[in-house]
Design a protein around this nucleic acid. Structure first.
Length: 523
RNA sequence: GGCGGUGUAGUGUAGUGGCCUAGCACGCAACCCUCUCACGGUUGAGACCCGGGUUCGAUUCCCGACUCCGCUACCA
């Protein structure tokens, strides 16, 4: 019966802190794979290490996935047929399967303390707890049944180890890398279960859950590749090899410079986030910054991540989530680790910024303006600078954004590009003044004021420009000399959009006011 | 050290036994546009890890070295 199995994949992070951006990518690829094949995407929390549990981490993971639009349809928080999805709540299940292996003599109990093991490692270099050494250790293979029961009764901590027979080639078929072959002799007798906290280790819980939850494909990071043969052996020991999921080991996300996996430290060092959202460590109080708070659009992060290790085979680079789902395939994932290119990430955000409708950007920008005390409730189209802080309309805001968004990568760069639309220049950029405000400039500006006074229609930027340019030409002034000084008067420095676009938005009164001000201040 | 994986410009990658004078994008430089800053446009610099083979021919196939990465926990 080779009935087509339903596609079911899972993302199974452990709640030991904020979700790393590499983990986000793994989640994304799982999601894309599942959606593409009309399958299920499950969120399972692997909290089998009681020592490393961090409160809040689970919520963080869910929050981050939600923000990015990586939706799971089964798992922690929403439930499903295979609940519970938190491994700490599945203790009895694992116990049952551990006992099964024990009974079948495919696993054994070991009493060696961490100290004893450390000593052994010091004594024998490259010590490995395996077929060649297990008979020298304190375990159920070497102790009498009597001693064993006594030790357990005395409450001595023990672990259950997987008994791996040596000298066997184990084959793992990886969807990205092809066949990977490892000899079982290099594998150690992995700890599957700890009596101390009654919890299994990752390896056991992982296999049991994937089997019970009918996972069809395991898509995870490359760091798991070396233990994949162990997992195959476990499926075999349980008699589940026929229904074993297919494996795909994703390449890692690497530091932008140097070597190694991308880490939190790299973000701090190089000044970019390595987490989806801000995170404050509950113990140390340390803050890690996230893409969300740094002003990234979730679509941009998803798009960027999708292309870091996967390629559609065409030159297209901007993809919606739906397009990614449509085009994604494991076969087109690359094998080698990808260095994290933060600059490219910015570019993606810039692209999405240009794609966003003005209304959406306006809403986002309003938050920033409110923080700066700018009133955005003005009913008039022209801005009101009469108060301490300016008061502008939504319409005005929207027009400002359309003029400056192409200069910004992030929402939080919008202010820097547009502050002069919301406040009068108080100082004038020294370099700009030096370059553009010469001895006769004040005279030119005074003449310009006369010209500006004479114009009645301040809505037609093109005609206004014609009028001004005509005057400049007739007087044989230099274009740059007039315009740049004009600009410095309005903006405070030599930057910003087309000057008459600014004039139209500011209006006659404010424009002339600013030029007069500049003349006064700069002489 | 052992085991595994990986190797195309600075970065992400495309690609193929001859069409490759190796494509695209980010970044970089120059120029154009222009009142400025951006955007945009054009151009430029910049890569097939190294040896052996196989082949008429290899960046592409095979072998080896090397590189980098990962794993080597009662972490995941």
């Amino acid at each position: 019966m080779s009935q087509q199995k339903r596609i079911r994949v899972r993302f199974a992070p452990s709640p030991t802190g904020p979700l790393h951006i590499g983990g986000v990518r793994t989640a994304l690829y799982n999601y894309l794979f599942a959606k593409k094949l009309n399958g299920d995407f499950i969120l399972r929390i692997e909290d089998t290490d009681s020592n490393r549990f961090v409160p809040g981490a689970e919520n963080y993971i869910i929050d981050a996935l939600n923000w990015l639009g990586i939706k799971f349809n089964e798992g922690v928080g929403i439930g499903g047929h295979f609940a519970p999805y938190r491994q700490s709540e599945r203790k009895e299940i694992y116990k049952k399967y551990v006992d099964q292996l024990l009974t079948a003599e495919k696993a054994y109990i070991a009493f060696d303390t961490p100290e004893e093991l450390d000593e052994k490692r010091k004594e024998i270099n490259n010590f490995q707890y395996d077929a060649s050494t297990r008979l020298q250790m304190r375990n159920s293979l070497t102790l009498s049944p009597d001693e064993i029961t006594k030790s357990i009764a005395a409450g001595e901590n023990y672990v259950v180890r997987f008994k791996i027979e040596s000298g066997e080639d184990v084959l793992v078929n990886d969807m990205i890398r092809g066949e990977v072959r490892i000899n079982s002799s290099v594998l150690d007798d992995k700890v599957l279960y700890k009596s101390a906290d009654q919890l299994p280790t990752y390896h056991l819980a992982n296999i049991v859950d994937d089997h019970l939850m009918e996972i069809s494909h395991v898509i995870r990071g490359e760091e798991w590749l070396p233990s994949a043969p162990l997992h195959v052996l476990l499926y075999r020991a349980f008699g589940w090899e026929d229904s074993m999921p297919a494996f795909a080991h994703l390449p890692l996300l690497l530091k932008p410079d140097g070597k190694g996996k991308l880490s939190k430290r790299d973000g701090d060092r190089l000044g970019f986030p390595v987490f989806p959202c801000d995170w404050i460590d509950p113990n140390s109080g340390d803050r890690s910054s996230g893409y969300r708070e740094a002003g990234y659009f979730p679509e941009a992060v998803v798009n960027f991540l999708a292309l870091l290790g996967w390629h559609p085979g065409t030159d297209q680079e901007i993809f919606s989530m739906d397009e990614l789902v449509e085009l994604f395939s494991i076969e087109r994932c690359s094998k080698s680790g990808a260095k994290f290119d933060f600059e490219k990430g910015k570019w993606f955000n810039h692209q999405y910024m240009q794609l966003k409708p003005e209304s959406e950007l306006t809403d986002l920008f309003i938050h920033e303006l409110k923080e700066k005390g700018i009133c955005t409730e003005n009913k008039m189209i022209l801005p009101d600078f009469s108060g301490k802080k300016a008061c502008v309309s939504k319409e005005y805001l929207s027009k400002v954004i359309s003029l400056i968004k192409e200069r910004a990568n992030f929402i939080n760069e919008l202010w820097d590009q547009s502050h002069f639309f919301f406040e009068r220049p108080e100082t004038y950029n020294e370099k700009s003044v030096q370059k553009y405000w010469k001895e006769n400039t004040s005279v030119l500006m005074s003449e310009l004021i006369d010209i500006l006074e004479g114009i009645s229609d301040y809505n037609d930027g093109v005609r206004m420009e014609e009028t001004v340019v005509k005057w400049i030409t007739e007087k044989e002034y230099k274009m740059g000399a007039v315009m740049n000084a004009f600009r410095v008067s309005l903006v405070g420095e030599a930057k910003g959009p087309h000057i008459f676009d600014i004039v139209v938005l500011l209006g006659k009164e404010e424009t002339i006011f600013r030029v007069k001000n500049a003349v006064k201040a700069l002489k």
